[in-house]
């Protein structure tokens, strides 16, 4: 009996041995011909028996602006950790396009391949000036030796300049990032994401602690970015989500509870129950 199972396992058609797989090179490039740019399939992560993600399956289309909402502990941050390589799932698959297996790449490789992340707590480099923050984030070689001799080219300056303009920090370019206001730090961080020239932007709670005015600007910024990049926004603030969302995914207990437009989602009785009931 067992040998039969073993043989079956060995002969499975949907999987091949690691050694048969072609070595994966980041430079192979992204393949999004089939539409989605991010594939998460049956991803499970557990911490000491607690299932943070439970067979989560989620697809993000190229150029899409997707909002992910859900109560605390729904697994939103863990999902981002899996995509960026900070956490390894117990099982499941995570692909970037159709060629790049995220589970076989480490954090820095994933970042270089074109997935940028903004953390929940704004983290910029406080002792660097704003322009230096952007310069560090700029796409380009990341090696130690090349950094030693690196000089900013004219193109690089133009790029920094346009991003400064985009995130509305043109006036503050010479300031130390540590001296920026909370909202400005959030924008700077989004700017740093842009400098990386990523295909996918993962944005964790971009408007936490922002004033209404700042929120509006952020909403405008994110909508502008969609199309050029795929943007995944995790947010608590429903009003903000409503203002930007085309497609909303509701996570609950580590799995997708509902998906659709904001109106569809909000009228879904299960969602209502999760947010209001119990």
């Amino acid at each position: 009996m067992s040998w039969l199972e073993t043989t079956r396992e060995v002969m499975r058609r949907d999987q091949v041995f690691d050694l048969v797989r072609p070595a994966q090179s980041v430079s192979a490039g992204l393949d999004t011909r089939h539409g989605p740019i991010l594939y998460l399939e049956d991803v499970t992560v557990s911490f000491d028996g607690f299932r943070a993600l439970d067979e989560l399956t989620l697809y993000i289309d190229d150029g899409e602006l997707r909002c992910i909402i859900g109560p605390n502990g729904a697994g939103k941050s863990t999902m981002m950790d899996v995509i960026t390589g900070r956490t390894r799932p117990d099982h499941g698959a995570a692909w970037f396009g159709q060629r790049l297996d995220l589970l076989r790449m480490d954090e820095t490789e994933i970042a270089r391949a074109g997935i940028g992340r903004k953390f929940q707590k704004p983290t910029v480099f406080p002792n660097h000036r704003v322009v230096e923050n952007l310069e560090l984030a700029m796409a380009g070689p990341r090696g130690v030796w090349s950094a030693l001799g690196a000089r900013l080219t004219g193109e690089g300056r133009d790029r920094i300049d346009s991003v400064l303009e985009e995130i509305g920090l043109g006036e503050a370019g010479h300031e130390l990032a540590g001296k920026l206001s909370h909202g400005q730090k959030q924008w700077l961080e989004i700017g740093m994401l842009l400098m990386q020239n990523p295909r996918v932007l993962l944005v964790d709670e971009p408007v936490a602690g922002m004033t209404h005015q700042e929120m509006d600007r952020t909403a405008e910024l994110l909508t502008r970015l969609a199309g050029r990049h795929s943007v995944v926004v995790v947010e608590h603030d429903m009003e903000f989500v409503r203002s930007i969302a085309r497609q909303v995914t509701v996570l609950h207990q580590g799995a997708v509870l509902a998906e659709g437009s904001m109106d569809e989602v909000q009228s879904d009785p299960r969602v209502v129950e999760v947010y209001l009931g119990e």
Partner: peptide, 24 residues
């Protein structure tokens, strides 16, 4: 004074952030 120095200072101030920018 080089970019390497700025990366290193960035590591000092916020290492996870630097890593997520693609620096080893």
């Amino acid at each position: 004074r080089s970019r390497l120095g700025r990366v290193v200072t960035a590591v000092r101030d916020a290492e996870p952030r630097t890593r997520s920018l693609g620096y080893r």
